[in-house]
Computed example of a mutant assay.
Amino acid sequence: MSLLDALADRDRVFDFLVPASSPVDVRHGPILYLEDVNVSFDGFKAINNLNLTINDGELRCIIGPNGAGKTTMMDIITGKTRPDSGQVWFGSRHNLLTKNEPEIASLGIGRKFQKPTVFEALSVFDNLELAMAADKRVLPTLTARLSGEQRSRIDEVLETIGLESLCGRQAGILSHGQKQWLEIGMLLMQRPRLLLVDEPVAGMTEQEMERTAELLTSLAGKQSVVVVEHDMGFVRSIARQVTVLHQGSVLAEGTMDQVSNDPKVIEVYLGAEEEA
């Protein structure tokens, strides 16, 4: 597959399309704000009066048992699912409930799904170049020589995701963990303000998990990062602030030690894991 062919595959390109700069204003509040959000599917209340605030540059971990509403929450933020009621704001100016998925992506919200979706026939370098070019929608840019600034940006992201030595390798032969890092790199090429990362260490080796923890913690401060994860050991290794969801609403928030010792959390989530 060539770069031109890959760019023509709009559905896949759109998975990581976010802008080079974001118009979000956080001078008067958090970067992401959900208030009294409700969603029902065929009578089942997936989200129940959900209130959540994410600050600019924060690394937040979201945990909770299956069916707690974690995926639905991310679907709402990215415009895939419309809530029945409530408010969702990105910065102080952008009401996400009035925007569709492309418009939300253009504001600087990037989503990393559990299964990596990279262009396996292309090199690591080409994947990053494609992510940078995709926002412009100008095919001739793919045949033009990269500017010094563009090359520097790719080199910077390669260093961040730890794939400098593999930049010429075909993405399809990377390990599972390396593909996950590459897809995060593709998001980073566009300098998003908010990253939503879904179960990033599922299927990883212990060494890959350690590297992923280093990568995500290094991003905090540069971007706001929301990590949904089931592996409690991994969450403990990166968590600064943890939100526990249960039955579509926030059950508890705090440090990992605080939520781990919360009787309500032990009963509905951590205690259930110990019994399993």
Score class of each variant (00 low, 15 high):
residue 1 M to T: 03
residue 21 S to F: 14
residue 23 P to T: 12
residue 24 V to I: 05
residue 25 D to F: 01
residue 32 L to G: 01
residue 32 L to D: 01
residue 34 L to V: 04
residue 43 G to T: 07
residue 45 K to V: 03
residue 46 A to V: 05
residue 50 L to W: 02
residue 50 L to Q: 08
residue 52 L to T: 10
residue 52 L to P: 01
residue 53 T to P: 12
residue 54 I to R: 08
residue 54 I to D: 12
residue 55 N to I: 09
residue 58 E to P: 09
residue 58 E to I: 11
residue 61 C to S: 13
residue 62 I to G: 08
residue 65 P to G: 14
residue 66 N to A: 12
residue 72 T to S: 02
residue 75 D to L: 15
residue 77 I to F: 00
residue 77 I to T: 03
residue 78 T to A: 15
residue 79 G to P: 03
residue 82 R to Q: 13
residue 85 S to T: 15
residue 88 V to G: 05
residue 94 H to C: 03
residue 95 N to E: 12
residue 96 L to V: 09
residue 97 L to E: 04
residue 99 K to G: 02
residue 106 S to I: 14
residue 109 I to A: 09
residue 110 G to F: 01
residue 113 F to D: 00
residue 113 F to I: 00
residue 114 Q to P: 01
residue 116 P to Q: 00
residue 116 P to M: 02
residue 117 T to N: 13
residue 123 S to F: 06
residue 125 F to I: 07
residue 134 A to G: 03
residue 134 A to F: 01
residue 135 D to R: 15
residue 135 D to S: 15
residue 142 L to G: 00
residue 147 S to K: 00
residue 148 G to N: 07
residue 152 S to C: 08
residue 157 V to G: 04
residue 159 E to W: 10
residue 161 I to E: 05
residue 162 G to A: 04
residue 165 S to R: 12
residue 166 L to M: 15
residue 169 R to V: 15
residue 170 Q to R: 14
residue 172 G to P: 03
residue 172 G to W: 04
residue 174 L to E: 02
residue 176 H to A: 06
residue 176 H to R: 08
residue 176 H to K: 15
residue 178 Q to N: 14
residue 184 I to N: 08
residue 188 L to C: 07
residue 190 Q to N: 11
residue 190 Q to D: 04
residue 191 R to P: 04
residue 193 R to A: 05
residue 200 P to S: 05
residue 204 M to F: 06
residue 205 T to I: 03
residue 206 E to G: 05
residue 211 R to E: 05
residue 212 T to C: 04
residue 223 Q to Y: 11
residue 226 V to C: 06
residue 227 V to K: 00
residue 230 H to E: 02
residue 230 H to T: 02
residue 234 F to P: 02
residue 240 R to G: 13
residue 241 Q to W: 06
residue 242 V to N: 00
residue 244 V to M: 09
residue 247 Q to L: 06
residue 253 E to T: 14
residue 256 M to N: 12
residue 264 K to F: 07
residue 266 I to D: 06
residue 268 V to D: 11
residue 272 A to N: 13
residue 274 E to A: 13
